[in-house]
Nucleic acid binder design. Structure first.
Lengths: 336, 336
DNA sequence: CTGAAAGCGCTTACAG
DNA sequence: CTGAAAGCGCTTACAG
């Protein structure tokens, strides 16, 4: 920057003004400075800028990588958040942290990031406490038990489950099961998405006069197979399954097949909060409700930056998953 | 840090020495300083340290997110690299960059990162040129056409393919096909992993007196289904398939099934360079050769840090995938 | 073993 | 519209 200033015959302050566009500079001076920058191939050192301005323009997306697998569905949150950040001249990096808030506190106090986007929020989340007590700007994707007043965006599970049941009921299904994730550890029992989706399913069934049944299974094909077996045992008349456990969905299909139950001829399967990519991997291609990750990642960054730079906070907080018809749902058939 | 120094009655220089353990400090002084740090909850500001030391201790893992999907297999490189970095007190962040080297050059010149780990290397890769011409420390996972003298680690495709063919031949298979990825765009035709794996297959077949056939398909289930159809058309006597295209593997199974060909009874399927997670999603569970991502991520970071901090460079550069028997390979059966 | 001081490359009141 | 100067919070020769 000093070199640029010398070459353009101005002070480094003036160079800084044009680089950041922070103060009016006469067109002539600006032109000389820009020419000098181009000739020298100048890039401002972001570390020095960060120290002087006390802003690093780095946002961390805190992801509990050890506890959650980062599949294509989760990645859509990350990539959309990253591109939203980049439009506002921020960097967004994916930062693996533990759930207990210790690593997150470390990260914050190092002064490397200006704000945090939090994923996979628990109903009672130590990381949120850490964020609040340190006064760190943040935005959640997901929410705690009582998120009133907190900055969050999330999937609208009530609307999502309602749409799912509308779809299945319109196909004539009345015996509908819900399969969710078995928490990998005890603390995950209070994983917000799971709890809210199950509650939404119970509520929606009640309003419709349906008898809800909810199963849990591990997040892999073996879990899905096992769940399929349990379901046929517990509710042999089931004609449709809503599953919010994308890694187990394949297993449900093959588990049913092993008992001679075909999808969708005998049982319809609707995979909720997932991606088209995941749905397309299965055979039959799954009917899915696509996670609004692309939008929520962006909204979360907007929400965070509204605190950092004072823009306006987005008014939308909740977004439903969207139905995409595949081959795994079909009209109900009366079964023995 | 000034506060800590005051409280301990020393200069900030001395505090710095104990924080970084860079110079001998008397036990008594050290104790006072550590006490003061604990009381004040001191964390050194990494931005200031970076500016003063001209080292940010941040490593970027450059990933062409737009061109490659970041599945669980690729994530194993990232997480192992991140933990290796963390052991040496570096941060590793995942940085999406284009293949053309422009974004990477930008990133480098901002001075935010000390070094780069490059993934998904092309045979002729503009990013490598950018790295070399700017003198940036880096390590490749994968390699260019002529990587002699360049810092890389990679999968040993020759050994991997040989093991795959050993496995299948020992089961009596002699008509073996190879399915690889169809490049999403023209520039990816020269994607190193694909080219090397195909060449290894051809070479190994030749040495064994087998007639190689190689198909390409898109990286999804539909692609796999299509490839299965094409294969049955082109080589109906095929009894085994080696596939290096994990997202299409499910599709091959179901594509074969649609033509009445069962896996593994009629055709064996071996999915190469993938993860157990992916293999377990299929039914039957796939026999796989597991990507050595966990080791290569770590080796890449060691290789990079040997340039940065002068440790010793790892001598291992190439690692094969490891065979894990699943349910998708079985003895060959003579077919019509 | 410890300290005073320069300096990392910028930003930002403040003055003009 | 432009500049001189302080300062961001550390590290690191250098001197003692």
């Amino acid at each position: 920057m000093r070199e640029v200033a010398e070459r353009a015959g101005v002070s480094i302050a003036t160079v800084s003004f044009v680089v950041n566009n922070t103060k009016p500079v006469s067109p002539a001076t600006r032109e000389r400075i820009e020419a000098a920058m181009a000739e020298l191939g100048f890039r401002r050192n972001v570390v020095a800028r960060a120290l002087a301005s006390r802003r690093t323009r780095i946002l961390a997306m805190a992801y509990p990588a050890l506890q959650h697998r980062l599949g294509s569905t989760a990645m859509s949150f990350v990539t959309s958040a990253a591109s939203a950040a980049s439009e506002r001249e921020y960097h967004l990096v994916l930062w693996p942290v533990d759930n207990d808030g210790v690593e997150l506190t470390e990260l914050i106090r190092q002064g490397l990031v200006d704000g945090i986007v939090l994923m996979e929020v628990l109903l009672d989340d130590a990381r949120v406490d850490a964020l609040i007590s340190t006064g760190t700007p943040y935005a959640m994707i997901g929410r705690t038990a009582d998120p009133a007043g907190l900055p969050y965006v999330d999937i609208d599970f009530d609307a999502t489950v309602d749409t799912a049941l509308d779809h299945l009921q319109s196909l004539g299904h009345r015996e509908i099961a819900f399969v969710s994730e078995r928490p990998p550890s005890e603390e995950f029992r209070a994983y917000g998405a799971k709890v809210r989706a199950e509650a939404a399913f119970r509520g929606s069934c009640e309003r419709r006069g349906l008898e809800p049944i909810i199963l849990e299974c591990a997040q892999n094909a073996a879990g899905g197979r096992k769940a399929a077996g349990e379901l046929l045992q517990a509710r042999p008349r089931t004609t449709a399954v809503v599953i919010m456990n994308e890694h187990a969905a394949f297993g449900v299909v093959s588990g049913l097949a092993r008992s001679g139950v075909r999808v969708p001829e005998d049982v319809s399967l609707l995979s909720v909060s997932t991606s088209s990519d995941m749905g397309a991997m299965a055979d039959p291609v799954l009917t899915i409700m696509r996670s609004p990750g692309i939008h929520l990642g962006r909204l979360a960054v907007q929400l965070l930056l509204s605190q950092l730079d004072g823009g306006e906070a987005p008014s939308t907080r909740l977004l439903p998953c969207e139905l995409h018809q595949g081959e795994s749902t079909a009209p109900a058939r009366v079964r023995g």
